[in-house]
């Protein structure tokens, strides 16, 4: 893969996506520290290459389900950072009108079926979306994204087993950042990696470097094409690292300093920046992207802060699509 040539447009786009996610979440972290945000904020800082690479391999009409740590995947699928920021600030102009928050951002028109606050819950939902495609005879593929810890939920087994038995057009993407909150995956799992479980379902399974957007792109592209051709699901495991705690405010003291420093050297954005320079991209062009993203996130924050909170009267809307008033009243 190292020898493969990618278009300048493509590699700059991957870089821009990663920088957009990093700056978005860094801003979230800052705002959280200042007490401007409420609730829980789970950042994917350090995991941007997975989101950028995976979504680059998808068509616009393809679908994703993601996790509580889903900002990156959602941005990479095309969500606008201003509407996301507004949602995370609980504003009316947010993707969900302030009713979902960080863990529930969705935009169906972009194929984003939602992040999810329940570990492992998005896996069967993704398989179900793929079942719908199969029944309708349409060509979209669903990317069901989950973390290493979710692979130990029953839903992982149940959904992958059915998807394999029925050859559903879905790719199971495991973002393996090594930790479920404080618990190292190896202390609760007997295999070196998650993708070996593919053998149990007789489907393809690979483990790739999740800190390189190009390796992620290639692996997901192959799995998506395989699914789109009607061959069924695969598991793609991307090895990565969340550079911050489980949520903002978690010092992550359960991880050793040595390992943390080791992974810091693998920062996907720093490394991809070096790659871009080696590919002959002018630094000025890279800096322009970075400045452009700075401005976009600054504007997104301003948009959120300038937006009103939902009116308290909206607390009872949107529970039901029909007969809402009566169903909410009693």
């Amino acid at each position: 893969m190292e020898n493969k040539k990618y278009s300048k447009e493509m590699i700059l786009d991957l870089y821009q996506t990663m920088v957009r996610i990093r700056k978005f979440e860094t801003e979230l972290s800052n705002c959280f520290t200042k007490g401007m945000l409420f609730g829980n904020i789970h950042t994917s800082i350090g995991q941007e290459a997975v989101a950028a690479g995976a979504n680059k391999a998808l068509e616009k009409t393809d679908l994703i389900t993601t996790t509580h740590r889903g900002h990156g995947q959602i941005i990479a699928k095309g969500a606008k950072t201003d509407k996301m920021m507004a949602e995370l600030f609980g504003r009316k102009t947010g993707y969900c009108g302030g009713k979902g928050g960080s863990m529930h951002v969705a935009d169906v028109s972009l194929g984003i079926l939602g992040a999810n606050g329940i570990v492992g819950a998005g896996i069967p939902i993704g398989a179900g979306a793929a079942l719908a495609s199969k029944i309708k005879g349409t060509k979209e593929v669903t990317l069901a994204i989950f973390g290493d810890a979710a692979s130990n939920e029953g839903t992982f087994h149940e959904a992958i087993n059915m998807a394999a038995a029925w050859k559903l057009p879905v790719v199971f993407l495991c973002e393996n950042n090594n930790y479920g909150v404080s618990v190292n995956i190896h202390s609760v799992t007997n295999t070196d990696n998650i993708s070996v479980r593919a053998k149990a379902y007789d489907i393809p399974g690979v483990t790739v470097d999740g800190n390189n957007p190009l390796t992620v792109y290639e692996a997901i592209k192959e799995a998506v094409e395989y699914a789109r051709e009607g061959n069924g699901p695969s598991i793609v495991e991307c090895m990565t690292w969340r550079m911050r705690g489980h949520y903002e405010g978690d010092p992550a003291s359960y991880r050793s300093k040595e390992v943390t420093e080791e992974w810091a050297k693998k920062d996907p954005i720093n490394n991809f920046r070096v790659y871009l320079l080696n590919e002959g991209i002018e630094e000025q062009e890279i800096v322009e992207i970075e400045n452009h993203m700075d401005k976009e996130i600054e504007d997104a924050l301003q948009f959120a802060l300038d937006s009103p909170f939902p009116d308290p009267s909206e607390v009872t809307t949107d529970v039901y699509s029909s007969d809402n008033e009566r169903c909410v009243l009693r």
Binding site: V108, I123, P124, A127, H157, A165
Partner: peptide, 26 residues
């Protein structure tokens, strides 16, 4: 068999998949 599906004994799986399918026009 596309519209009448015998599932394995995986209630969390097939009810969860029903949610996903329902979100996508089924």
């Amino acid at each position: 068999e596309n519209r009448v599906i015998d599932t394995p004994i995986s209630e969390a799986g097939f009810v969860g998949m029903s949610v996903g399918a329902a979100m996508c026009g089924i």
